[in-house]
Design a protein around this nucleic acid. Sequence first.
RNA 1: GGAGAGAUGGCUGAGUGGCCGAAAGCGAUCGCCUGCUAAGCGAUUGUACGCCCCUUAAAGGUGUACCGCGGGUUCAAAUCCCGCUCUCUCCGCCA
Length: 428
Amino acid sequence: MLDIRILRQNLDLVRRKMQERGQKIDLDAFAALDGKRRDILQEVEALRNERNTVSKEIGEKKKRKEDASAIIARMGEVSARIKVLEDALNQAEEDLRNLLLTIPNLPHESVVCGAGSEDNPVIRSWGEKPAFDFKPRPHWEIGESLRILDFACGAKITGARFTLYRGLGALLERAIINFMLDLHTSEHGYTEVLTPFMVNRASMTGTGQLPKFEEDLFRVDKTDYFLIPTAEVPVTNIHRDEILAEKDLPVRYVAYSPCFRAEAGSYGKDTRGLIRQHQFNKVEMVKFTVPENSYDELEKLTANAEEVLRRLGIPFRTVSLCTADLGFSAAKTYDVEAWMPGQDAYREISSCSNFEDFQARRASIRFRRGEQGKVEFVHTLNGSGLAVGRTVVAVLENGQQADGSVLIPEALRSYMKGIDRIPPARVA
RNA sequence: GGAGAGAUGGCUGAGUGGCCGAAAGCGAUCGCCUGCUAAGCGAUUGUACGCCCCUUAAAGGUGUACCGCGGGUUCAAAUCCCGCUCUCUCCGCCA
C-alpha cells in the first residue's frame, strides 16, 4: 500500500509511475473519495463532540435531580444523525482502502523503464557454461531415464504439473534444501523458521497477494485459508501488527516451504518438466530493515542467493527487472537466472526484491527509532535462496555426462551419503 | 466435536453505565540527590485520523476514535445484550 500522502500531494508522480509499469489504474476516483471521507469525518467529529459535552451535562443535571428530558430528546436526534454519518464514513473509508490496496508499488528510481522481460538489463554473469561433446538433454529426459523423476505418476496421483521424485531424485531434492538452509543460517546470519503452509486472508493481504490475485492461489474449501504460494507470506507476517526495536534490526529469516500456485493464465507455458509446477519446494530469505539500509540489504540478499549457485558451480546471470516486469508489491527486483544447457537458456531460479514500506504499511510492521523515538514502518525484503525444483533442474542439466549419469556438485555430496554421481539406470 | 474460563497500555493488573485514555505496580527516559554502587525523590512515558498554526515537514494547540473483532441497547458503553475470533482448562478423537 502506498502512503496516502503521496497520492494527496503528488498524484501526477503516481500516475507516471503506473504508466511506466504499463498498468492501467484509475486514479481519478482517488481525490473525490478522499475529499468525501474528510468532509464526512469533520461533520461526524463535530457532532460527536457535541454529544460528549452534552452527555456530561446530562449526567450532572441528573445528579442534581434536575429535569433533562428536553436535551435528552435533542441528543437522541444527534445520535441518530451520527449513526447515519458513521455508516457513510465507514463506506467511504472502505472504498478508499480498497482503491489503495489495488495500486502497485512505485518502482525505485534505479529501475529501468521497459516494456517487458527483454528490457531487463543484465547486471552481472558468473561461471563458465559447460561444454558438451554431445547434445545436452533437458532435465525431463535425464530425470526419466535415471528413474528419479516420474511426471506421469505425478499426473496420475494428482494431475498436470505435479511430479513424483524417486530414490536419488528425492534425496537430491532433500539434500539441496538442507544445503541451502545450512549455508544461510551458518554463514549468512539468517534464523531458520518453519511456518504454517496455510495462511489466513489477513496474511495474504499483508504481503500483497490479496485482494488482487486470488485466482493465482489455492483456497482451502470450507475455510478462508489459502495454501501459501511462497514462504514470503507466513514469514513476513511473523511481525504483522508489531513494533520492533531498532536495535533488533535487521531481522533475517530463512524458511523452507512447499509453495502452491494455481498458475492461472500460464496454460501451455513450460508444460514439460519441473520448471512450472503447482507444488514446488523453495528456501526463502526474508529481511526486515530500517529504511535507510534497505537497498544495501537488497544487494546482500541477492549475493546470498547467488552464493548458492557459486557453491554448486552452476553458471548464472543476474538481471534487474524493468518497470514492466516488476511484481505488484516490489520497488526493485533482481532475478538470478541459472544456466540450463538442456534448454539452452537462462531460467529464473531466484527473485530478490525490496518492497520498501509497501508490505509494512499493509501489514502494519513498524519499528521504534532508538529507545523512545518515533514509530516508523520497516522495509521488507525477500528472495528465493533458491527455488529447489529448479535447482535440481540446473544440477541435472549442468552435471549430465555422456554415459547418461549426472555428476553431483561437491557441495552436495556430504548431504547425499557421499555419492558423487547419479548412475544410469540399469536397463530393465 | 462437547463443556467451562478468559482477552484492558511495553509488561503485570484494577476497573459492572457518566468524574476512564483508563488506578496501582513494574519497566523505560530525563532531572535531582548521592564518596561509588544500590536505594530515594520529582517529572515524563500509547497509536491513528481530522482541524488550527505554518512555505512543506516537525514542534505546538485542539478535536475525534481506539480496553480482542463486529453489531445492538442508551442522552451516554472498557462496563449491559448478541454474534465472531483467539487463548487456557477438562472430556472425546487423533499423528
